[in-house]
């Protein structure tokens, strides 16, 4: 039986979007609704969730203020450190390197993703620990260097782990940059440094913003790296969530924290997009 073109068109669309749609519905939308419901509930007598409609969980957020502050500090600082390291690499890959070697270097950038972040973070633990780099330094006479369990170690682990996620979007937007614009800038008398700050950097901002938002958002939920390399002395939202859901089994309070975190993410994303549109001058610029 032949289908009418319109019916056919709808069917094809449904088949294309169906799997992802169902997936998102069951594993993102439904859980989020559950979390929303939990967040206005009460803790059951033996933990878990008891139905209720109260905002007392949100009123209690203050007790975890330290985790929020630490997270809201770690995420942007970590993302910014990532950016400082990633931009020159992305610039080199997109502008300077000769095209034949580009593919190889790009695959080296993502190569670390072939092993799990946990393994690689353990490797750093060893490297920074007493039998790693400090030991080598002792051999050449520099003693009492402490690397592991310092803020520096956490930052290093974060930059290392998230670097590819920052490099890629910046690389893409630099790669798209029309070289004629740079020539136009030189033609109008601007030297290379001026050209970088007035043309290259502003036009790569969509990539910078994407990378920054991506890494910031992921860092908001990060707790492994601070735990392993920072000695677990500083608490983050991620730690709080693990604790509330798995140990103290206070699901409603955990849900309230999770909802607040999502709200923060939405705000950050919105600001980042607005800012990018403003600077890039057009809404047609996509966030890559």
């Amino acid at each position: 039986m032949p289908l009418k073109p319109q019916t056919r068109h709808k069917l094809v669309t449904a088949l294309l979007l169906g799997p992802a749609g169902l997936w998102l519905f069951f594993f993102l939308v439904l859980p989020f609704i559950a979390i929303l419901v939990f967040s206005v509930g009460k803790r059951g007598p033996v933990g878990g969730y008891a139905p209720a409609f109260t905002f007392e969980q949100f009123a209690n957020l203050g007790t975890r203020a330290a985790a929020f502050v630490n997270t809201l500090e770690l995420a942007p600082v970590g993302a910014f450190s990532c950016l400082l390291v990633a931009y020159p690499v992305a610039y080199y890959l997109a502008v300077k390197v000769n095209p034949q070697r580009r593919l190889l270097l790009l695959s080296l950038v993502v190569a670390p993703f072939w092993t799990s972040l946990l393994m690689r973070t353990y490797a750093w633990m060893y490297l920074l620990g007493g039998r790693g780099i400090p030991h080598l330094l002792e051999l050449v006479g520099i003693e009492n260097v402490r690397l592991i369990n310092t803020p520096g170690a956490v930052l290093l682990g974060i930059v290392y782990g998230y670097l590819p996620l920052m490099i890629m979007p910046i690389y893409v937007s630099l790669e798209k940059l029309d070289r004629k614009l740079l020539e136009a800038s030189y033609d109008l008398g601007a030297k290379p440094i001026g050209t970088f700050f007035r043309v290259t950097l502003p036009l790569s901002l969509p990539g910078v913003m994407t990378g920054f938002a991506l890494v910031t958002i992921l860092l908001l939920g990060e707790y492994l790296i601070p735990q392993l390399l920072g000695g677990g002395k500083v608490f983050f939202i991620g730690n709080a969530l693990v604790d509330l859901f798995l140990q103290s089994r206070n699901w409603p309070f955990g849900s309230a924290i999770a909802v607040t975190l999502v709200a923060v993410v939405v705000v950050i994303l919105t600001i980042a997009m607005r800012l990018t549109w403003r600077i890039a001058g057009t809404r047609k610029v996509d966030l890559v």
Binding site: K180, L181, A184, S185, D187, L188, V199, L203, A280
Partner: peptide, 14 residues
């Protein structure tokens, strides 16, 4: 010297 480029090469962010 100044140049008028083939596809203008105007700065899109200005």
């Amino acid at each position: 010297v100044n140049m008028v480029f083939q596809h203008y090469a105007l700065f899109p962010h200005f």
